[in-house]
Structures are given as C-alpha cells and as structure tokens.
C-alpha cells in the first residue's frame, strides 16, 4: 500500500468471519488456549455463559485480516490494540458470524504511517471496541 493511495475516511473492503465450533478447537490448538469455555458447552453454561464463546484473541486475530488484506503485508502492522466488549456465542448448529469493517482514521504522511479503526459486530453488538491498527505504508 503506497502512502499516496491512503486517505482519511477510506473504507476497507469488509468481510464476514464465520465461526464454527471447529474453528475454536483449531484456534485452541494453534494458540495453546484450552480454556473449556471455548469448546465445552456444559462447562460454559455452568459458569453462566449463554453457550461456548469464541476466544477474544480469535476475534482479534481474525478481524485484523481486513487490514492485512488491504495492506498486502502482515509485517507492516506496527501496532494493534482492541478492547473486548462482548462475547461471541458459537452455537453447535450453524455457528456464528462476525461482521468486520474498517476505515482509515488518520494518516501521518512524513512518517509513512496510518491508523485504521476496525469495527467487529456480532448479532448487531460490537464485540471489539477501540480497535486500532497502526500500519506502515510504502
């Protein structure tokens, strides 16, 4: 992504992240986070959750792909921060969808940097807030 082609207010191509129980098992294995609230429905409901919930870090990691795809180089994500504002319950039947969009919030042309704000929602509720990625541009 060249500096000249980045403008404040620019919308990045959105995407829908579909999450199945198997996605969470895969994430658990890849990350080493085997907390049973992410794969055992009986355990999750016993501790007061509506269902198995997605790992917050799964959502954080999946959401930034909107930025990486646009940027064209994952190594140019310099900073990335989120606040986890709501869980994503993942039912056995049908799984769950997370809608991800992003917009360029600011551009620092001399430093060749830009800040992108990511929005991630599930069932109409924001699951990430203050989700900001600082990226390097060419």
């Amino acid at each position: 992504m060249t500096q000249a082609s980045v403008e404040v207010g620019q919308q990045l191509p959105p995407r829908t992240v579909h999450v199945e129980r198997s996605s969470l098992v895969r994430y658990a294995g890849a990350s080493g986070d085997f907390n049973p609230i992410h794969w055992d429905e009986r355990f999750a409901t016993a501790v007061g959750l509506p269902d198995v919930i997605a790992h917050g870090m799964f959502t954080m990691g999946a959401a930034v792909q909107v930025v990486v795809d646009w940027l064209g180089d994952a190594g140019k994500v310099l900073e990335y921060a989120v606040r986890f504002s709501a869980p994503v319950p993942v039912p056995h039947d049908g799984g769950a969808d997370i809608e991800v969009s992003a917009v360029v919030k600011s551009v620092d042309a001399p430093a060749r940097r830009a800040v992108v704000e990511i929005t991630a929602t599930h069932a109409g509720a924001k699951v990430l807030t203050r989700a900001l990625a600082t990226v390097a541009t060419d």
């Binding site: 994430y27 990350s31 990691g61 792909q65 990486v68 795809d69 190594g75």
Partner: peptide, 17 residues
C-alpha cells in the same frame, strides 16, 4: 509450523506467513 497453524486458525492468508 506454529506460524502456519495460527495463520490458518485466524484466516490469515498473506503468503508471508
């Protein structure tokens, strides 16, 4: 191997992974 696993788990398709 661990980079590949994590990339696949979060849908990261950038070939640099």
């Amino acid at each position: 191997a661990k980079i590949r696993e994590l990339a696949e788990a979060v849908g990261a398709t950038d070939p640099v992974h």
